[in-house]
Amino acid sequence: MNAQRLCEGRVVVITGAGRGLGRAHALAYAAEGARVVVNDLGIGLDGTPDGAPAPDSPAARVAEEIRAAGGEAIAHGGDIATTEGAASLIRAALDTYGRLDTLVNNAGFLRDRMLVNLDEDDWDAVVRVHLRGHFLPLKHAAAHWRAETKAGRTPVARVVNTSSGAGLLGSVGQGNYSAAKAGIVALTLVAAAELQRYGIQVNAIAPAARTRMTESTFAETMAAPDTGFDAMAPENVSPLVVWLGSAAGTGVTGRVFETEAGRITVMEGWRPGPTTNKGARWTPTEAGEAARKLLAEAQPPGQVYGSS
């Protein structure tokens, strides 16, 4: 029976895996036979240290939970938004298990403010953990996989990035978070195009679930009394993440999936809409008139979260 598990023998690195979605992903991968490197810095919701002692850190607790269930896992407490931390995360997988197959970029936190109240530090901190925290682990993992390909060992490598509906549509009060999550989508598209030659597939999810970052939003959404199905449980997101990180998803790359509860949606990004061409330079008035005509023919944009 174990031989049929989807990720049997694969080594999976997951950032921000001490709680919430990351923890759910780690447990789901382990249940499908993966050996898991559980990364978590052990910080508060706003990105400040929470003071958890290393032996009882969130990452250590999840790794122990996996081992207690008969799986294999190690904890990693490095800061993946630094070159040293990201490199050591990839080394941890290679030194411990001798290989790396899947990277799930999930780490993040919030510092929500309306734009006029948003400090530079709040902007930089959120962009740093979400966007740089995706780029650096991806860079170091991709460098390893490229070396494997050049050595004649083309991997079946997978990367799953974590964007958000805020990155696709925007979210009032989350300019920093929305910008970072939009950047992750663009990074995913570029990485998928650049890295496919090395056997690397890169996709992204835009999940919705009850975590520390969203507990106030989904606090009242609990399990349905008739079915027992908790629509906002983070465990609902993990099955797609596991499949995308497995060998079963061959040929799927450069895609973004919105996923929550029992719903999966393939998101379709910017595509050319109505267009016109004068064949010469417009005057400002002409350009405005043309733009209004095109807008009248175009599909309306999706509503920004939190707007009225």
Rank of each mutant, 00 (worst) to 15 (best):
M267K: 11
T227I: 03
G199C: 08
R281C: 10
M232E: 10
M222D: 13
L295E: 13
I205R: 02
G279Q: 10
G269F: 11
E297N: 05
K293F: 03
A204L: 03
V202E: 01
N236I: 05
W243Q: 04
N236V: 04
E260Y: 13
D226V: 12
E289Y: 01
A291C: 10
V266Y: 06
E268H: 13
G199Y: 06
V242F: 12
A291Y: 11
N236P: 04
A206K: 01
Q299F: 07
S238I: 08
A248G: 07
Q201N: 14
A290F: 13
Q299A: 13
T250D: 15
T250A: 15
P300C: 01
D230R: 00
A296M: 05
G254C: 02
G249K: 00
E260N: 08
E289W: 04
I200V: 15
A280H: 10
T265K: 11
E286H: 07
D226N: 12
P234H: 05
P300R: 10
I264N: 07
A219M: 05
A231G: 00
R210S: 11
A208M: 14
E220I: 00
F257Q: 06
G262C: 02
V241K: 02
I264E: 06
R255A: 11
G245A: 06
E297F: 05
M232H: 01
Q303P: 00
P274Y: 09
W243F: 15
Q201P: 05
A208R: 14
A296Q: 09
R255N: 10
N203G: 04
P284D: 13
V241E: 07
T217M: 14
E268F: 07
W270S: 11
T265D: 13
A248R: 13
E297T: 06
A287H: 08
G249S: 15
T283D: 06
E268G: 03
A208H: 11
R292E: 14
E289Q: 11
T217L: 15
N236Y: 02
R210Q: 09
P239N: 06
A296T: 09
S246A: 03
D230W: 03
S246F: 01
I205P: 03
R292A: 15
P207A: 00
A290H: 12
G269E: 06
E286Q: 15
G249R: 07
M232Q: 10
E215R: 14
G245V: 06
V256I: 10
R255I: 02
A261H: 01
A209Q: 04
T250S: 14
W282V: 03
V237N: 02
A261T: 01
E260S: 12
T259C: 13
F218W: 13
S246L: 07
V252E: 06
A291F: 12
S246P: 04
V202N: 07
A296R: 07
T250P: 01
K278R: 15
T283G: 10
E297R: 10
G288R: 08
P274T: 10
V266G: 00
T217P: 03
P284W: 10
N236W: 05
M222S: 13
R292C: 09
A247Y: 02
A204V: 03
A224P: 00
T275V: 12
G254L: 01
T283Q: 07
A233L: 09
G262F: 02
T259F: 08
R281D: 14
I205M: 02
G249A: 15
G279D: 07
P274I: 09
A223T: 07
G269D: 08
E235S: 11
T265R: 15
